[in-house]
Design a protein around this nucleic acid. Structure first.
Length: 549
RNA sequence: GGCCUGUUGGUGAAGUGGUUAACACAUUGCCCUCUCAAGGCAACAUUCACGAGUUCGAAUCUCGUACAGGUCACCA
């Protein structure tokens, strides 16, 4: 019996030969230096921050070289795959502007010439290549059951040997074709394993684009290529797919580095050119002093929905991911405040090569503050509208009723060189400006400061509104009138005077304006009082001044 | 246990044989100021986990130790 006939028996019904597949997926026609990357999740749940980070890095590198960034679904674990996994992944990623140039669109559709992009639909392809290896006597059927494998492991542990199906432990390597066929005919289940040519005591070099040179022992384990359900293992699927899809850079989590010797070996054995590997460190978190990987189950901030629900701007999240990717991004942004992520040249060498970066929420919030302060009033108004529509319907109703008024409020000290930075999230905004709306304003819980005497307060307010306040004043005359008022009532209009001789005065101009501020808003801390008064208007100011008693 | 990787201030980090060891966040203090938010200025690692070695010279190179992470599935 020839090896070819043997391969046909082991993997029957394969429609195409590997040579045919090679022709079906030719080299890509791309400009010099174009990077082809992919995001290759298993549809076992929703993507989390770590996944987003990986996708972000992959996209950034392909974008800046006019390359390709595609989505491949790795669903060879039928047990763990969830319903509508692809749609859920796409939907979760959508708000973060992760768009793919090609790949799966839904369970049944895809775009691009290298599909299908769902591994369970590529079964024939993997088998075609497995057959090639069987024909070349580089792969063989293995009948070892779960129990037998457990037994081997036990023995290895007991005798303190390296774990795995290799060398003399790989007994099925030596099964004759005849015996194999007989056992198959008897209905025994089997896998296809690689006949590993590796020597554990020799080294293979992985030149990682991020981590640099890493020496690994050659792989000598007879890794499973095709599982007994006919689907490939991750390792085999990765090698076949990234070869056929012409991935130039495999960007993945660094939990894979210790398996990379297997992958390099498979590329070699199949005669393929291996891609460049870029292993990125995981996102960590400081949990009461211990550093651990960000966990989807334990950490709310690991889930993508957290950011949407909290109202943390997606744009800020992306800026934060950019600074984690290349720490010099931050300095660049500082020098180019209106710079876009697309304009920054990312570099693998500048990526964090250690054991992981701390995912620091306070830092992200700081970036977010700056981000929000740079938006125009229209931009922030529209974003706020979007957010409240989903998460604060009452407030949504109010701000959509008064669009121009709301924009003016949001614009206080905004469109200037050093804008206010008081909000890190869309959800912070309401508590900063609620008192500007009659629908939300309540004349109670006044935060009076130094001046608390009711009669004194009334006197200040009445004098101010009747004798001093004029809506047509510009800011300077507005303030000088407050100073006049202060002087006339026995308060220092000038802070310096007050500081020099505090005993000469009942108080100072700050106390006076605080009274006005609190009477108007109930709060002692607000944005610029001049703007607030102007926006509220004289009639309503009077109304509010009369409400507190 | 084997294999791989890492360890720079409270935190994230620059740094690749000669630097006063960048920068950012946080913190503290001062200034500015009608409150706040900002902004400005300053302080914060005599030292880069520890121990040896190479070198005129080491955070940077070598070895060892400690600690941390990853990985050793018919999961990805």
């Amino acid at each position: 019996m020839t090896n070819k006939e043997y391969a046909d028996i082991l993997l029957p019904g394969v429609k195409h030969t590997w040579e045919e597949y090679e022709e079906m997926y030719p080299e890509r026609d791309l400009p010099e230096g174009a990077i082809v990357t992919r995001y290759a999740p298993s549809p076992t749940g929703l993507p989390h921050m770590g996944n987003l980070f990986q996708a972000f890095v992959s996209k950034v590198f392909s974008d800046q070289t006019n390359g390709v960034f595609f989505l491949r679904i790795e669903d060879t674990d039928t047990e763990r795959s969830i319903e509508n996994g692809i749609e859920k992944i796409l939907e979760a990623l959508k708000p973060f502007n992760i768009e793919f140039t090609e790949g799966a669109i839904s369970q049944t559709e895809y775009k691009g010439n290298y599909g299908p992009y769902i591994q369970s639909k590529r079964e024939d392809i993997y088998k075609a290549y497995a057959k090639k290896l069987i024909e070349e006597d580089l792969a063989y059927p293995s009948f070892a059951s779960k129990e037998e494998l457990d037994e081997i492991r036990r023995e290895q542990e007991l005798s303190k040997q390296r774990l795995g199906y290799y060398g003399r432990w790989a007994k099925d390597r030596f099964i004759s074709h005849e015996e194999a066929i007989e056992r198959i005919n008897n209905g025994e289940e089997y896998t296809i394993r690689l006949k590993s040519p590796g020597d554990f005591f020799k080294k293979v070099i992985l030149n990682d684009a991020i981590k640099g040179k890493i020496e690994l022992p050659e792989n000598d384990i007879d890794e499973i290529l095709i599982k007994s359900d006919g689907l490939p293992t991750y390792h085999f699927a990765h090698v076949i797919d990234d070869h056929l899809m012409h991935t130039t850079h495999v960007i993945r989590g660094d939990e894979w580095v210790s398996s990379t010797n297997k992958h390099l070996q498979m590329f070699e054995v199949l005669g393929f050119k291996a891609p460049k590997y870029c292993h990125i460190a995981p996102l960590n978190k400081n949990d009461n002093g211990t550093i651990r990987k960000l966990s989807k189950r334990k950490d709310p901030e690991a889930t993508l929905m957290y950011y949407i629900e909290e109202g943390i701007p997606v744009g800020a999240v992306m800026l934060y991911l950019a600074t984690i990717t290349n720490s010099n991004f931050e300095a660049w942004l500082d020098a180019n405040p209106n710079g876009k992520i697309e304009d920054f040249k990312f570099d693998f060498k500048k990526a964090n090569s250690s054991n992981g970066s701390l995912f620091d929420l306070p830092k992200l919030l700081n970036i977010s503050k700056n981000y929000l302060s740079r938006l125009s009033k229209e931009e922030i108004y529209n974003k706020l509208l979007e957010y409240t529509k989903e998460y604060d319907k009452d407030f949504y109703g109010i701000i959509s009723k008064y669009p121009e008024y709301t924009k003016d409020i949001l614009n206080i000290e905004r469109e200037q060189k050093k804008p206010r930075k008081d909000y890190a999230k869309y959800s912070d905004i309401k508590q900063g400006i609620w008192y500007m709306y009659d629908e939300l304003y309540e004349a109670k819980d006044y935060e009076w400061q130094k001046i608390t005497d009711k009669e004194e307060i009334k006197n200040i307010l009445n004098t101010y509104i009747n004798e001093y306040y004029d809506e047509n004043d510009d800011k300077d005359t507005w303030f000088s009138k407050i100073q006049d008022l202060s002087n006339n009532l026995g308060y220092a209009g000038n802070m310096k005077d007050y500081k020099e001789n505090p005993d000469n005065y009942k108080g100072n101009v700050a106390d006076i304006s605080t009274v006005i501020r609190v009477a108007l808003t109930t709060k002692s801390q607000t944005p610029d009082l001049y703007e607030l008064l102007r926006l509220i208007g004289k009639d309503k100011i009077k109304e509010r001044f009369n409400q507190f008693d």
